[in-house]
Design a protein around this nucleic acid. Structure first.
Lengths: 164, 164
DNA sequence: TTCTACGTTTAGAATGTTCTGAACGTAGAA
DNA sequence: TTCTACGTTCAGAACATTCTAAACGTAGAA
């Protein structure tokens, strides 16, 4: 392959890596995805090791991360014992489904924690002095507000593209 | 303050901390925000140090992070030389404005990088063999697709709540 | 002026994350 | 069967982030 073209490929990969890093994801996983994305043919784990200059252990771990996200898929290549992969090209779908999944899980957890806090306030609320009763009231109000916020976020999820 | 009520406060704070941690933010900043959020009165940096049991250096750094996000504001308390803070309660606004800001900056950067890659392909495209010309064509197509994706994301920003 | 009560900065410690390279397991070739 | 070409796992190295505690600067009190 012409080295000028390789340069473009590597530049593209590098950009994707720092992009992923910015999103709090693993930079190598981002680079791997970018390599598969820009390649017209299936790419083997060895190819990835060669092109990105990272250990095959690293590649092994990160390819499974990408698989778990549904970002890549394994393909069979006639006459080779190696594992080849291609990118699922619908990046927006991958990203939004990850966001939705994560947020939905999170809001559920938070609601649970808040309900627990409310219970604690209820059972503490019996023999309190005036000042503490006021504090309890403030806390209840705040917790209610956060629950409302959480419901609002849940509602917004519905409007993300590629909802299912 | 009644210790049962303190327990609720600390539980609330802890929850917010791990929530922030999950979002890739600093857990202490999340705890600090939660403390200010649930407190009805302004809270001093010393109070934060006492309640969260972290060093004042840590508090000093993270309170400025929160200020930069517009998540808290400094308030003057009559007769005290200390700095007091209260939470900006519109969490959703804070979060969405941070997301929008971040995404807008990111998409701009990416567009720049991609244009650079396109230029590189143009200038390399002169004296290539058949195979390399095909590769160049594939790369151009992929880059165009990503640019479209980027524009789509830009467009989505418009529909986030609290747009300005 | 000196003293005190703050907030800030920073070097290095503690902790967390990611990576490599070696050891290993396994399936197919020979 | 043994050998080879893979992919996987994992201990510890390399690196990045976050925290503490001490030194410092400063404004107001005395």
């Amino acid at each position: 392959m012409n080295s000028e073209i390789e340069k473009v490929r590597d530049y593209f990969i590098e950009t994707a890596g720092s992009m992923a890093g910015n999103l709090g994801l693993n930079a190598i996983a981002g680079q791997m995805y970018a390599l598969l994305y820009i390649s017209n043919e299936p790419v083997s784990l060895d190819d990835i090791t060669d092109i990105l200059k990272v250990s095959k252990g690293n590649v092994s771990v990160n390819i499974r991360v990408l698989e778990r996200w549904g970002a890549v898929k394994k393909v069979w290549v006639k006459g080779s014992r190696r594992n080849f992969y291609t990118a699922n090209e619908d990046i927006l779908k991958i990203v939004t489904s990850r966001i939705k999944e994560g947020l939905a899980k999170r809001t559920k957890e938070i609601d649970g924690e808040l309900s627990r806090a409310e219970e604690m306030l209820e059972s503490a609320g019996k023999q309190l002095n005036k000042e503490d009763k006021k504090t309890t009231h403030v806390y209840k109000q705040k917790i209610t507000d956060i629950k409302k916020l959480s419901a609002k976020v849940e509602g917004l999820l519905r409007f993300l593209p590629y909802a299912e």
